[in-house]
């Protein structure tokens, strides 16, 4: 299976995580680790950018589920951006759009965070 990579980029009090490659049961722990790190630093305004994400499995989706409650309790949020059509279909099928805000690009997601500040 192809590899997976998470890159973090801090922008003010918002952190952006760029996902790349295949997010499945094998690579989900990497993503989990990245989110855990942000939460432990109390950086709870998170944009997950998926422009380079090729595939996401249910285990990958589960990672969002594992953190969202805690993050929202801390007045933060996970906003999703820049999904390919294929990845969006997966999110859509499961009904994520009704639970998460999804944006076409990072700047829109960032703007949304800054707007509420």
């Amino acid at each position: 299976m192809s590899g997976f990579e998470v890159r973090r980029h801090d922008n003010g009090d918002v952190s952006i995580l760029h996902l790349k490659g295949f997010l499945d049961a094998h690579t989900a722990p990497q993503f989990e680790h990245a989110l855990q790190e942000l939460v432990s630093e109390n950086r709870v305004k998170i944009v997950v950018s998926m422009s380079d994400l090729d595939y996401i499995s249910s285990a990958g989706l589960g990672v969002f589920m594992g953190f969202i409650e805690e993050i929202r309790e801390k007045d933060g949020d996970i906003k999703l951006s820049s999904m390919s059509e294929k990845v969006f279909k997966v999110f859509d099928l499961l009904g994520f759009p009704s639970l998460y805000e999804i944006f076409d690009d990072e700047s829109a997601a960032l703007a949304k965070f800054n707007e509420t500040n």
């Binding site: 589920m65 099928l93 499961l94 009904g95 994520f96 009704s98 639970l99």
Partner: peptide, 30 residues
């Protein structure tokens, strides 16, 4: 449908397949 794949329906009369995907989110998400 709670976040599951749609139902494929082949209609003999129209000779086409429709994928029926009513709204719904997976169990456990909310």
């Amino acid at each position: 449908r709670a976040g599951h794949c749609p139902v494929a329906h082949y209609s003999r009369r129209r000779d086409e397949v429709a994928f029926l995907q009513p709204g719904g989110i997976a169990v456990g998400l909310d």
